[in-house]
């Protein structure tokens, strides 16, 4: 049985937290609170990748001495934002090496970098793989818009080019009428389990299959 008092998942933000929770719920029947532990105590939001080594859970002696697993599911990022798969992975490994040196104890960790643990990219790239097939034209539209804005990004305009999160928000807003859930406020607007907008195809989506394999290998999970 999955023991979240021992094993923790670390993510970069709220959206990541919800995305992992959604996958755990629909594919592994794990919902939160889980065995009395709140979502934020199981899937920990580090508020950016640089917040990882400040997290309380990494200092917990019980978890360290019991070889608790630390699953790091972060963005690989791109060279344009000082990231990239190889660079980011190395940076996290160096951080753990320093932590192990400081605590003089072995710390059990595994890293998975979105979108697929091999390419550059981020959570949003991952999400784009989960867009409903009949709405995938949105990706092309967005990329055209983004490319156009980039080409006009001259100093005199001082453009605030949208971050990749903007792509997901725009998608959700654009297809508002396709939502099947009931949205009470702006926060629930970002519920990524809505099957009117998203399709979690565990058989064919390679990004999703790769992430699930990582979760299954490290947490001994079995799908529904």
């Amino acid at each position: 049985m999955l023991d979240f008092s021992l094993n923790k998942i670390f993510v970069e933000g709220n959206t990541d937290q919800k995305m992992i929770a959604t996958i755990l719920e629909i594919h592994y029947n794990i919902s939160f609170p889980y065995n009395g532990l709140a979502l934020e105590d199981c899937i920990i939001n580090c508020n950016g990748w640089q917040g990882l080594f400040k997290q309380v859970a990494l200092k917990e002696i019980y978890r360290i001495e019991s070889s608790g697993k630390n699953l790091i599911i972060f963005d690989a990022d791109n060279t344009s934002n000082l990231g990239g798969y190889t660079k980011r992975k190395k940076e996290i490994e160096v951080g753990f090496a320093e932590l192990i040196k400081a605590t003089k104890k072995n710390i059990n960790y595994s890293i998975y970098l979105l979108p697929n643990d091999s390419d550059n990219g981020d959570l949003e790239s991952f999400y784009m793989s989960c867009i409903k097939p009949d709405k995938r034209f949105f990706i092309e539209c967005w990329n055209n818009l983004y490319g156009c804005l980039q080409s006009k990004n001259e100093a005199r305009y001082e453009l605030k080019i949208p971050k990749s999160a903007g792509m997901v928000y725009s998608y959700v807003d654009l297809f508002e009428n396709y939502r099947t859930g009931f949205y009470q406020n702006k926060k629930t607007k970002r519920d990524y389990s809505d099957d009117g907008l998203w399709e979690y195809n565990f058989e064919e989506n390679n990004h999703l299959k790769s992430l699930c394999k990582f979760l299954e290998d490290n947490l001994n999970l079995k799908s529904n």
């Binding site: 709140a38 934020e40 105590d41 920990i44 939001n45 580090c46 508020n47 917040g51 400040k54 997290q55 309380v56 859970a57 200092k59």
Partner: peptide, 12 residues
């Protein structure tokens, strides 16, 4: 640093 991160992420 840990305390502050815990308060921000709403960790118990």
């Amino acid at each position: 640093e840990n305390i502050k991160a815990g308060l921000i992420s709403n960790t118990n």
